[in-house]
Design a protein around this nucleic acid. Structure first.
Lengths: 240, 240
DNA sequence: CAGATATTTCGGCCATTGCCGAAGCGTCTC
DNA sequence: GAGACGCTTCGGCAATGGCCGAAATATCTG
């Protein structure tokens, strides 16, 4: 069966430590150069070049040439979702996790990070919890739904909800969102169009800023204030 | 970063052709013995034993001992979702796919198969299309919603919808479902609790039956009649 | 045009690991 | 209890593939 060989090839590509590191670094949705990815993965540029070529021809990455730089990014949201689902399976169960949670970089990732186009980590989960507690969002295992109050909040924040609104038959006016099981918190955060909108809004408003070359983000003082006022999230909840 | 090593380990486990074959064979949610899996993967039992041990200690598989047989199954729905998301990335784009679509086994899988706990392939997509066309379901990229007519249909079919119904605030009475991008059709089919209920109902009513040791299913004459009468799906649509 | 930087190609070394044959250990059956 | 069957462990072979150094190519800068 040909699809089996293709499956194994894709999984094996993601299964090398160096390539896995590069793919994870690209999980924030941005495009990085080969040299940056080589440094992140801890290998020499020539080795990285080979890896990146294989990832690109397999359709996992897309490249964009700008002068002497070649910017690599994940080829599609499907790749990002694959990465997230592997992370979920790979994240060890609670008891065994304590001894792994040590490095400062790991701690920053667990506190707040971007998950391709939306927020994850303690911040992402706290945001989802706050919206559920406030009656703006309903999250189930199979899906999520913005309430009228939730849609009103999005409008108040200046988010254009029109493209998200269902207009047909009985679900008129409803906005659907997607729950995404957080691999570090093991509880759902908000994904989909609504999650992406909240994430880009947070970045645009300076509530969060990206940390160096990882996909971790830091909550700014301004962000702490806004999150507290708008959603009732207390800073300590996220800062740990 | 420890999570990186765990990630690569999981992906590498799925990235071996023999192990990938075994994992795919388990995608129908049933439990198989080591010998069966060895035969499916085309390797000797002692080699399979080693693979299965590694998959189990990594948390991808769960084993259940019954006498001298050891039944292996996917450890969790999260593993099934990981497999599905890898398949989606691994499925080649439309133009390049033609030359791979040859084997009869492959053809059967593309016609109708189970995807862990729900239906996929042309049958699964046709079912979703029919429900959307009939106004019983609304599917968006981020989620799906049963309409009143859809809930009524589920009740008529004898499906207990009570555990699925949202009871809080503004979404009172709504039933959420999950769209799942079909890796062979590249269009969404129905997953989540609703999809699982329809699949188990189809099996229980004899509308479909499993084919040998794969996760492909065949639509029975009775099934063709039922699908046509209940959902308006014409048999040729699925049989190709 | 010369030097610096980013990236790729080539060649060879070495570790990992998938594979099977042989043998050992439980479990079921007669 | 003897034999059959399912599964696992052990040992050794062979191939895959990741890695780097050296060198070539392309682009930008002065």
């Amino acid at each position: 069966m040909a699809s089996n060989a293709m499956f194994a090839e894709v999984a094996a590509l993601a299964g090398d430590p160096a390539r896995a590191g590069m793919l994870q670094a690209l999980m924030d949705g941005r495009a990085l150069t080969a040299s940056e990815l080589a440094r992140i993965a801890g290998i020499t540029p020539q080795t990285a070049s080979g890896h990146l070529a294989r990832l690109t021809t397999a359709g996992l990455l897309a490249v964009e040439q700008q002068g002497r730089h070649r910017y690599h990014r994940l080829a599609s949201p499907a790749v990002a979702q694959m990465m997230e689902s592997i992370m979920l399976v790979a994240s060890p169960p609670e008891p065994a996790r304590r001894k792994f949670t040590i490095g400062p970089r790991d701690a920053a990732l667990r506190a707040a990070r971007t998950c391709y186009d939306h927020l994850a980590g303690r911040l992402g989960v706290a945001l989802a919890d706050a919206l559920v507690a406030g009656g703006q969002v309903e999250l189930a295992k199979d899906g999520g739904l913005m309430t009228d109050a939730g849609v009103a909040l999005l409008r108040q924040l200046g988010i254009d909800v029109d493209p998200m609104v269902r207009r047909s038959t009985s679900a008129r006016g409803r906005v659907l969102c997607r729950p995404c099981l957080d691999w570090s918190e093991r509880r759902p955060h908000l994904a989909g169009a609504v999650g992406a909108a909240l994430c880009s809004l947070s970045l645009a408003n300076g509530w969060i800023r990206r940390i160096d070359g990882t996909r971790a983000v830091a909550v700014t003082p301004k962000g702490e204030r806004s999150y507290r006022e708008l959603f009732g999230i207390c800073g300590g909840e996220v800062a740990h």
